[in-house]
Amino acid sequence: MKKKIFTTLTFLLAISYFSAQKLTFTDKNFEKAVIANFDTNRDGAIDQNEADKVVNLFVSNKIQVRSAEDINLFKNVQTVVLDGSIMIGIDLKNLEFLTLFSCEACNLLTFKAENLKSLKSLYLNGNKLTQISLSNTPEINELHLASNTLQNIDVSALKKLIILNLENNQIKKLDVSQNPNLENLDINHNPLNVADVKRGKITTNPAAAIPSSSTMPKKPGNENNN
């Protein structure tokens, strides 16, 4: 009996230790930002318990974050806004609850998202993107990629896509025939015209799905940071 009690206590202590273990960050500026907002026990660090409570993560553009790798430490985060940071590439994986991600005007060259099953809104306007990879992101309904240098993009797997903003890129051909819910498509200022866009049978008026950028819905604000 004593042995069972000892084993149980050891197990509980181990869980407590690992959940309270301080997390290691690769980007010190990012670490400072999250400590300032989410260090609830005021020990000058972020442990797993604190990270797991973060739902909305907004980092001021005054803080020059260089890497988004640390976002993967926040398993329950739903909204992430890193606008104005300076990064070359982003690779996001397995964030089960992430619904909105924004990294606008960050000098990004590449973006990769994998197993973001709840992601609905993705804002990457104003970067230098040449590549974007979206794998197992079935819920995306807003994809904003204006003012990049993309030459091609595959959106065939995004069956729920409603808004696609590709204004001011280098795209010559586009296939949206697998996007039956698409309502807003902006391809202005690309080296292509309506005839270069492959559409599904659902679209009866090709020009109707190409509004000016002024009709594009605005991104939600970042009023809250918790």
Rank of each mutant, 00 (worst) to 15 (best):
K120C: 05
V81H: 14
L109Q: 04
L166W: 01
T149V: 11
I88Y: 10
I163W: 10
A113N: 08
S121K: 15
L95F: 03
S133I: 15
I88G: 13
M87R: 04
K128G: 06
H144M: 14
I90E: 07
L73I: 01
T99R: 14
A105P: 00
A146D: 07
N141G: 06
F111N: 05
L108H: 04
N165E: 12
G126T: 01
V80H: 06
V81M: 07
L129E: 03
E139A: 13
L150K: 05
L116E: 11
I153F: 02
S156L: 01
Q151V: 07
N141R: 03
F97V: 00
L108K: 06
Q131P: 00
G89C: 08
S133Q: 15
I71L: 14
T137I: 12
K120V: 03
K120M: 13
T137H: 12
N165T: 08
I162V: 14
E96W: 00
N94V: 08
V155S: 10
L109I: 11
S135A: 13
L150I: 00
L150S: 03
L134Y: 10
L158N: 14
F97R: 09
L95T: 00
V155R: 06
E96C: 00
E114I: 09
I163H: 11
L150T: 01
E69G: 11
E139D: 15
L158S: 11
E96D: 08
F74C: 07
D154M: 07
E114A: 08
T79C: 11
K160S: 15
F101K: 12
Q151I: 04
G126I: 00
L95M: 06
N115R: 13
Y123K: 01
L129V: 10
L82T: 09
N148R: 09
N141I: 07
L109M: 15
L82K: 12
L166D: 03
Y123R: 03
K159C: 08
Q131H: 14
E96T: 04
I86R: 09
K117A: 11
Q151Y: 03
N115K: 15
L108A: 06
V81R: 14
L122S: 09
L134K: 02
V155C: 10
I71T: 03
N107T: 04
N136H: 12
T79G: 07
I90Q: 10
S135C: 11
Y123G: 03
G89T: 15
N107W: 03
T149S: 15
Q78C: 08
I71N: 03
V155M: 10
Q78N: 12
L122V: 06
L92M: 07
D83Y: 04
G89L: 03
L98D: 00
L134V: 08
N165Y: 09
N127H: 06
N127T: 01
V80G: 08
